[in-house]
Amino acid sequence: MDGGPETPDAEALAQRYLACWNERDPARRAALVAGLWTVDAVYVDPIVAAEGRGAIHDVLATAQRQFPDLVFRPAGRPDGHHHVVRLRWEMAPDGGPAVIVGLAVLVTERGRLRRVFGFLDPVP
């Protein structure tokens, strides 16, 4: 092996990922996306597939419009190995019980998100 695979900082990556989903200001959200995702990143969940930063930003903006009173937060501690982080998350009113829970599999490339596969339970 060439020194071993990159192991991402799961906590830091999860915080940055959730910050993208929670940012309500479009310009700040776009800056977060540009700083975290690769140019050719892909996001896929049961409802949507998005390719590229612009399309991913649009998915985040749509979630903000559909769920304006909910925030994304971790549901447990993320863990990772070999360029991959597993993040359990939930959407809830600030301080309230979860309305939607899910799992995100974050695949990194040089510390940035290259692919994200999302799972929802229940699917809204």
Rank of each mutant, 00 (worst) to 15 (best):
48 V>M: 04
110 R>M: 05
15 Q>P: 00
40 D>S: 05
21 W>I: 07
115 R>Q: 09
59 V>A: 14
33 V>A: 05
102 G>F: 06
124 P>M: 07
46 P>E: 02
42 V>R: 14
50 A>S: 11
38 T>N: 05
38 T>P: 04
72 F>K: 04
89 W>S: 12
119 F>V: 13
2 D>W: 14
13 L>G: 01
34 A>T: 08
27 A>Y: 01
73 R>D: 09
55 A>L: 10
83 H>Y: 12
105 V>K: 06
48 V>H: 07
54 G>Y: 00
40 D>P: 01
20 C>V: 07
112 R>C: 08
123 V>K: 12
43 Y>W: 11
85 V>A: 01
21 W>K: 07
116 V>T: 07
84 V>M: 14
90 E>C: 13
23 E>H: 03
72 F>D: 07
7 T>R: 14
114 R>V: 02
13 L>H: 00
22 N>S: 11
45 D>K: 02
18 L>H: 05
106 L>E: 00
34 A>D: 14
50 A>L: 04
22 N>A: 11
53 R>Q: 15
104 A>T: 10
117 F>M: 12
46 P>I: 03
4 G>C: 04
62 T>M: 10
21 W>R: 12
81 H>F: 09
42 V>D: 03
92 A>Y: 12
31 A>Y: 03
107 V>E: 15
56 I>P: 02
79 D>K: 11
100 I>E: 00
39 V>T: 09
70 L>C: 08
68 P>D: 07
111 G>W: 11
110 R>G: 03
32 L>C: 01
50 A>N: 06
120 L>M: 13
99 V>I: 15
42 V>S: 06
9 D>Q: 02
45 D>R: 02
29 R>A: 10
51 E>F: 03
53 R>E: 11
104 A>H: 08
122 P>F: 08
72 F>A: 14
84 V>D: 13
122 P>H: 10
84 V>I: 15
113 L>K: 04
65 R>N: 08
21 W>H: 15
92 A>E: 02
119 F>N: 02
115 R>L: 13
68 P>F: 06
62 T>Y: 05
10 A>Y: 00
17 Y>L: 05
17 Y>P: 00
